[in-house]
């Protein structure tokens, strides 16, 4: 309870403070406004990936890494497991959380749908960073159809 609340408030402050500015806009001056939050999440995910217990750390299968995210990483972050994991067995995975803790306090339904992506960027980076620590390059995006359920799509990059 205490730790979850502390993280929740801290995350809210980071979103409020850091969601807009991107010091490295890239070509055309178009700002990827959530990239700073994703970058923060990536580094936290990398570090958590190092700290969480791993069974047979070497030669870990891709699917095992995704299961690790759904169980151990999610439990450490949100004190629950991911609700669903689906894959096309070609490197694309969809992780579904029917009651994502960072969106629960926003209410249910479409009212704050527009603001929701700000609160998902950090977690996308977190998943990507943890996978990076486990040896996988990935692209993670999130989508919300109706609060507080959301889906994280993970595409493993072939190197």
């Amino acid at each position: 309870m205490a730790d979850a609340v502390l993280f929740e408030f801290l995350h809210t402050e980071m979103v409020a403070e850091l969601w807009a500015p991107d010091p490295d806009p890239g070509s055309g001056g178009k700002r990827r406004s959530l990239s700073v939050l994703e970058g923060l999440g990536f580094r936290v995910g990398q570090a958590l990936g190092e700290r969480l217990p791993l069974e047979t750390p070497a030669f870990r299968e891709e699917l095992d890494a995704l299961k690790f995210l759904c169980r151990d990483l999610w439990a450490a972050m949100f004190q629950k497991h991911m609700d669903g994991l689906r894959t096309n067995h070609q490197g694309t995975y969809v992780l579904q959380d029917n009651s994502f803790p960072l969106l629960v306090t926003m209410g249910s339904g479409p009212q704050y749908l527009e603001e929701a992506p700000k609160f998902l960027a950090f977690t996308c980076g977190l998943l990507c960073g943890a996978l990076h620590t486990l040896g996988f390059q990935s692209l993670v995006t999130a989508s919300v159809a109706s609060l507080p359920a959301c889906k994280f799509q993970v595409v493993i990059q072939k190197s």
């Binding site: 923060l40 936290v44 570090a47 972050m77």
Partner: peptide
């Protein structure tokens, strides 16, 4: 891992700001 989470977030917050 739970203990480290706040430290990691605080670090990112400081460097982010």
């Amino acid at each position: 891992a739970d203990e480290a989470l706040f430290l990691l977030l605080h670090n990112e917050m400081v460097s982010g700001v």
